[in-house]
Measured scan of single mutants.
Amino acid sequence: NQASVVANQLIPINTALTLVMMRSEVVTPVGIPADDIPRLVSMQVNRAVPLGTTLMPDMVKGYP
């Protein structure tokens, strides 16, 4: 099973992602692959992302 990117904390709308905000976890449904975490750094979320939420491609501005 492939690990996905999961919010490690509440991420407010328009926040630029940092490594501490994300963790990898095997979840269903599958979200953004954990391998993409380095690419996500400094990209902004377009909505508030609660703790434990799987990051989906449509939540991150400019992804992929």
Results as ranks from 00 to 15, higher is better:
residue 41 V to L: 14
residue 34 A to F: 07
residue 38 P to V: 11
residue 5 V to K: 00
residue 49 V to C: 05
residue 18 T to D: 06
residue 51 L to C: 05
residue 40 L to F: 02
residue 39 R to H: 11
residue 44 Q to S: 13
residue 47 R to E: 13
residue 18 T to E: 09
residue 57 P to Y: 09
residue 34 A to K: 04
residue 23 R to I: 12
residue 53 T to I: 12
residue 27 V to T: 10
residue 55 L to S: 00
residue 36 D to I: 10
residue 49 V to N: 01
residue 2 Q to W: 12
residue 20 V to Q: 11
residue 56 M to F: 10
residue 11 I to A: 01
residue 30 V to T: 11
residue 24 S to Y: 09
residue 48 A to K: 07
residue 59 M to Y: 08
residue 56 M to G: 05
residue 18 T to L: 10
residue 8 N to F: 04
residue 34 A to I: 08
residue 25 E to M: 07
residue 21 M to V: 03
residue 29 P to M: 05
residue 31 G to F: 02
residue 56 M to S: 14
residue 52 G to H: 11
residue 59 M to D: 12
residue 5 V to G: 01
residue 45 V to L: 09
residue 35 D to A: 08
residue 44 Q to H: 12
residue 33 P to M: 09
residue 7 A to C: 04
residue 42 S to H: 11
residue 44 Q to G: 04
residue 23 R to W: 03
residue 53 T to V: 14
residue 21 M to P: 03
residue 37 I to N: 00
residue 40 L to C: 03
residue 13 I to Q: 08
residue 29 P to T: 06
residue 24 S to C: 07
residue 5 V to P: 00
residue 63 Y to M: 07
residue 42 S to L: 14
residue 49 V to I: 12
residue 11 I to G: 01
residue 24 S to A: 13
residue 45 V to Y: 00
residue 44 Q to C: 06
residue 60 V to A: 00
residue 26 V to S: 12
residue 13 I to N: 14
residue 53 T to A: 14
residue 6 V to F: 00
residue 48 A to C: 12
residue 49 V to K: 00
residue 19 L to Q: 11
residue 35 D to G: 11
residue 35 D to Q: 08
residue 52 G to W: 04
residue 43 M to D: 03
residue 25 E to S: 08
residue 58 D to S: 12
residue 36 D to W: 08
residue 12 P to G: 07
residue 46 N to R: 08
residue 12 P to V: 05
residue 32 I to M: 03
residue 17 L to P: 03
residue 6 V to D: 00
residue 12 P to F: 05
residue 63 Y to D: 06
residue 28 T to N: 13
residue 52 G to S: 07
residue 57 P to S: 14
residue 26 V to L: 14
residue 52 G to Y: 05
residue 11 I to K: 00
residue 25 E to N: 06
residue 14 N to M: 14
residue 62 G to P: 05
residue 6 V to Y: 00
residue 43 M to Y: 12
residue 3 A to M: 13
residue 33 P to E: 06
residue 35 D to I: 09
residue 56 M to W: 06
residue 16 A to C: 09
residue 10 L to I: 13
residue 29 P to I: 06
residue 39 R to C: 14
residue 25 E to Q: 08
residue 45 V to A: 05
residue 46 N to Y: 13
residue 37 I to P: 00
